[in-house]
């Protein structure tokens, strides 16, 4: 009987822990309504030089038909996107164009697929399809963690005070 009341007391005192855990799970796993944008045709010109893509970051919506034109400005470069079956190889003076549909959401790296010198492995860019929910969830989770830390600090000092008095 006595141990039961102690447990109840503990739960009562630490109810906020379970609340925060619940909130954290909610933030991580809550399904978000997919934005239903009309698929648009989008054209991007990507210039490849040693050792960078310009622009190095492409942001599109899910379902967009993306036409990429790869222009090489010095040597033979390629462009392949991780997670998509897409590759372009362009010589200087012979720019190449291809189209694909961005049906997968998330952030994908695109990289040079043709060895182009010593810094070739670092020639990468970023394709972002749809809003970056992982980042948004991460930020909210971080705020929650700070809040939880603050709360636990207050709670412990409260307990200490009560034990001293």
């Amino acid at each position: 009987m006595k141990s039961d009341s102690v447990l109840k007391n503990l739960v009562k005192k630490n109810w906020w822990i379970s609340l925060i855990v619940l909130l954290a799970l909610l933030i991580i796993f809550i399904p978000l309504p997919q934005s239903q944008n009309d698929a648009a045709d989008r054209h991007f010109q990507v210039e490849a030089s040693m050792f960078q893509f310009i622009p190095g970051r492409i942001q599109v919506n899910q379902g967009d038909r993306i036409t990429l034109e790869l222009i090489s400005t010095d040597v033979v470069h390629g462009l392949s996107i991780d997670g998509y079956d897409f590759e372009l190889i362009a010589d200087p003076g012979q720019s190449q164009t291809a189209t694909f549909i961005a049906n997968k959401t998330g952030v994908f790296r695109f990289r040079c697929s043709i060895a182009c010198g010593n810094m070739h492995p670092f020639m990468i860019g970023k394709l972002q399809v749809g809003p970056n929910w992982v980042l948004v969830r991460g930020i909210i989770l971080g705020v929650l963690a700070v809040f939880a830390a603050f709360l636990s600090f207050r709670q412990s000092s409260h307990i200490q005070k009560s034990t001293v008095s």
């Binding site: 400005t73 010589d91 200087p92 003076g93 012979q94 720019s95």
Partner: peptide, 19 residues
């Protein structure tokens, strides 16, 4: 032309190739 000239003379011949 595409292989040898376009890098300087431009793909459309305008003389504005990337080189």
């Amino acid at each position: 032309y595409a292989e040898n000239c376009a890098a300087c003379h431009g793909e459309t011949g305008k003389g504005d190739g990337i080189m």
